[in-house]
Design a protein around this nucleic acid. Structure first.
Lengths: 348, 348
DNA sequence: CTGTTAGCGCATTCAG
DNA sequence: CTGAATGCGCTAACAG
């Protein structure tokens, strides 16, 4: 005898009421006599009944499923972001349906693409699609909109104007400027910025603002771009930038993510024997949890996870017909041990 | 005009066929004339139709939703585990529905409990529940079984015999022994094991086996237990165990997770000024990605993520009436820089 | 307040 | 191979 899920009809039979009564007993604000509801609940309890949310969504206009698309879920900052977001959703009675964009390591497997991911989520009739990774082509945003599904883009390039997507962005430019000013104040003269080959504009914007601010101070920045957003990228950058002799004598590095910055900093310290921050100053971006660990103490531009999560939640909960919103998340600098003390007053 | 999802009826109308034909066109192996199917697919394409998986599950006996229950998703190893698992599920056409057990930080919020989490997943009619965190009381396992849902327990205490749950376990005891032997071979005589106050038996088993193996060599082990599984716990342990004077002169520490071990190691190195591995050797457990970073180089007991994921997938895909299985994952020691070289031959 | 009826979107009988 | 009919589990509009 196969065990089955109990249905409302089973409960109705046992409680001696109609199926509608059962349904109402489980619908907040429905008009049911207290005693009927009690009888129903008792029967449900005894039978082990619980509402089938999948069937329920056939009637409501929106499901309580929120699709989250992410890659790189092992990344220290992304995982923290995902953790916070899924917890927040749950507290609001929404459920997280994940699409992982991580490439399948098996031979012959095709690379997962964003289009298919969105497709998948639409098949589940999610109420919203949240993008943590990748860039959303306008066409995908329109596809979602055509199905009444809003997209929320977190630190992703904004789609064409008028497209139905909420965007939540940390102040990448402000953060880049902050980093540049701080390194300059520390007396660094030979700056470098390390970034991954990602196609998303957030990291580019961080780097660009950094360079622009340095230029204002009359400094040119060595731009090092290669590979994915990973620790290894930072390692490779440090090896290449600070290699033997280091003719340019780079003395300040801005990594566009903490992972990259940590890779660069640690390689400088432990492999190349350069003192941080005495010989080299390093700044990251994100303030991932590990950056505060005692072995790292990375000075970094913090994007508040709480603010980011709150803004995301707000966007998700906003009424379906609300206008598209653009929320900026302020950033600030967390001073730890990877940058030399400022000399004199900070530049404007 | 509200945008709506396109239904099979819409497609049928446009293609000039019945709804059933549409359904069949999207059902692999159904009997449809090639030209009808083509007409249907064309109409579907034009209209932007996609099957509603939620409605589809009303008919099938099992959904393609797999519920994953986890806390601590920011944790380096757990997040890697979750990442790998969700990617693997997806490659099999299954989708990940997450329940995050992370405590809600808002004041007055109630702590999320496992019972409610399982309840939630049953409401979504998941095909399987995978437990990455917490311990499953027998009663919950039975609850799932009563609804035809299998549970898969990863590094969790096994439920009562006969309960319908597959368990996947790394060889905790073997790992603990490995760690003890290696530290002893390095010449450590004053050992300590650091563990969190988790109620799950996996970490306890690691610690117990470590102690037992040390006892075989005539050594007693200082057992330090406190707080959650986190970096901070390792930090606190190091401060307490290695405090001024360190009368016992602890020279070998086994952290039951990499996070704890890293906290202890880094605190010893950078805060207490103890040389690792010359003065103190440290071993962790998990082989989380960060443990290999150049600033850490933590020697650790590795539980293969690939093997773990493969075993989990196998359990999930096994037929509903298959017997309960228990899969053990082998572990091995990854030698990096946190343990002094072995003196002489390794003990048996 | 209640039961009856009619869908929600889909898959699967059953005749033809 | 096809369409009509039925049911999956639930909610909502309708009379009573």
């Amino acid at each position: 005898m196969e065990p089955r899920f109990v249905t409302a009809a089973d409960v109705a039979r046992r409680a001696g009421v109609s199926r509608s009564a059962v349904s109402r007993a489980f619908t907040p604000g429905a008009s049911v006599a207290p005693e009927t509801r009690a009888r129903v609940l008792e029967a449900a309890e005894a039978l082990g009944y619980r509402v089938n949310r999948l069937a329920r969504t056939l009637h409501r206009d929106r499901s309580d499923l929120v699709g989250i698309i992410g890659a790189n879920l092992g990344n220290p900052y992304i995982s923290a972001q995902f953790d916070a977001l899924s917890a927040a959703l749950q507290a609001e009675g929404l459920q997280t349906l994940l699409v992982n964009l991580r490439p399948d390591p098996r031979p012959g497997a095709e690379a997962p693409d964003l289009g298919r991911a969105v497709e998948r989520l639409l098949e589940y009739r999610v109420r919203t699609v949240v993008l943590l990774s990748g860039a959303a082509p306008d066409e995908l945003v329109r596809l979602c909109a055509a199905n009444g599904v809003r997209m929320v883009l977190i630190n992703r390039p904004a789609p064409a104007a008028g497209a139905l997507a909420d965007v939540i962005d940390s102040d990448a430019a402000g953060g880049g400027r902050l980093a540049a000013r701080r390194l300059i104040a520390a007396g660094c003269r030979q700056l470098a910025v390390v970034l991954s080959e990602s196609r998303t504009s957030a990291k580019l914007a961080r780097a660009d603002a950094f360079c622009a601010e340095a230029a204002r101070a009359g400094l040119t920045v060595r731009r090092w771009t290669q590979g994915p957003n990973s620790y290894e990228t930072g390692v490779a950058a440090a090896r290449s930038l600070l290699a033997e002799g280091d003719p340019a004598r780079i003395d300040g590095i801005f990594g566009v993510t903490d992972e990259i910055a940590l890779g660069a900093m640690n390689t400088a310290r432990h492999e190349l024997g350069l003192a941080v921050p005495e010989r080299l100053s390093v700044i990251g971006f994100d303030d991932a949890p590990i950056s505060g660990w005692s072995s790292h103490r990375l000075t970094t531009v913090r994007q508040s996870l709480r603010a980011l999560t709150a803004a995301t939640l707000e966007a998700i909960l906003s009424p379906a017909d609300a206008a598209v919103s653009h929320r900026a998340i302020a950033v600030d600098l967390v001073e730890r041990g990877s940058v030399a003390p400022a000399r004199g007053p900070a530049p404007t």
